[in-house]
């Protein structure tokens, strides 16, 4: 059974999450504050659901501690609207995904599923030579991209973008992460054009109204989803 740590201070929310998760046959551990969470850090959780607004220490700090201890541990943060900047920082530094309050329980469960898939992949080691999702076929060795068997010409930047998105599929890749990987940290001037590049890449690999891969989490980042 997968072990999930729920870090949340509101009893009713904890109760709901616990109930729903246990029904899906997860083993649920609960921490009501940051300290309790950090006390459980060596218990080898499979996933952490972390509310950013904790009563004692900042959720971001807890998140970072867990990330330091487990590089591949999926961490999903739960945030409210007013925590927007904190959420973006957490996603950039340590978290894999987020859900906003008020959430649907199915949404939470779906996100958890995606993270487990992603984590499995990461644990399996390096990416295979090919990534195939529906009509899309990316060959990482030859840097070739095919859609419906037709080779697509991507610019250097477009390929790098696609590579980062595909290798981090299922997770949110923050704008800052994309920038640092594609252009290096020093080129902040490209920050404003990121949506334009993504738009061009999208037009090349997606099939309008039929097959979507790249999803925008406005003001946070992009998410590549191969199993929609």
């Amino acid at each position: 059974m997968k072990k999930i740590l729920v870090v949340e201070d509101q009893d009713t929310a904890v109760h709901l999450l616990k109930q729903s998760l246990e029904r899906r046959y997860y083993e649920v551990y609960v921490a009501h504050n940051g300290r309790e969470a950090l006390d459980m850090i060596d218990q080898h959780m499979d996933l952490v659901l972390l509310d950013l607004g904790l009563p004692d220490i900042s959720g971001l700090h807890v998140c970072q501690k867990f990330r330091e201890a487990y590089p591949f541990l999926p961490i999903i943060i739960i945030s409210v609207k007013s925590d927007e900047p904190e959420k973006v920082r957490a996603l950039h530094l340590c978290a894999d995904d987020y859900v906003s309050k008020p959430y649907y329980m199915e949404e939470v469960l779906a996100r958890i599923n995606v993270q487990f898939l992603h984590a499995n992949r990461m644990r399996a080691g390096a990416e295979s030579q090919n990534f195939i999702a529906g009509p899309l076929d990316v060959n990482f060795v030859q840097r070739r991209v095919m859609v419906h068997g037709q080779e697509i010409e991507l610019t250097f930047t477009e390929y790098e973008l696609l590579y980062i998105l595909v290798t981090n599929r299922g997770r949110i890749v923050t704008y800052d992460f994309i920038l640092s990987k594609v252009w290096g940290d020093d080129d902040a001037s490209e920050r404003k054009n990121i949506h334009v590049y993504i738009n061009r890449l999208r037009k090349k690999i997606e099939i309008p109204a039929k097959r979507r891969f790249i999803y925008n989490e406005a003001k946070v980042g992009y998410r590549f989803q191969s199993d929609s």
Binding site: Q10, T12, L16, L17, R23, V80, P102, Y104, M105
Partner: peptide, 19 residues
């Protein structure tokens, strides 16, 4: 509104989601 809404929505949707 926000806190109770979260709970109502979460509770009801979780019940709806049950097999």
């Amino acid at each position: 509104f926000h806190t109770p809404l979260t709970l109502i929505k979460g509770a009801a949707s979780s019940l709806l989601g049950q097999e």
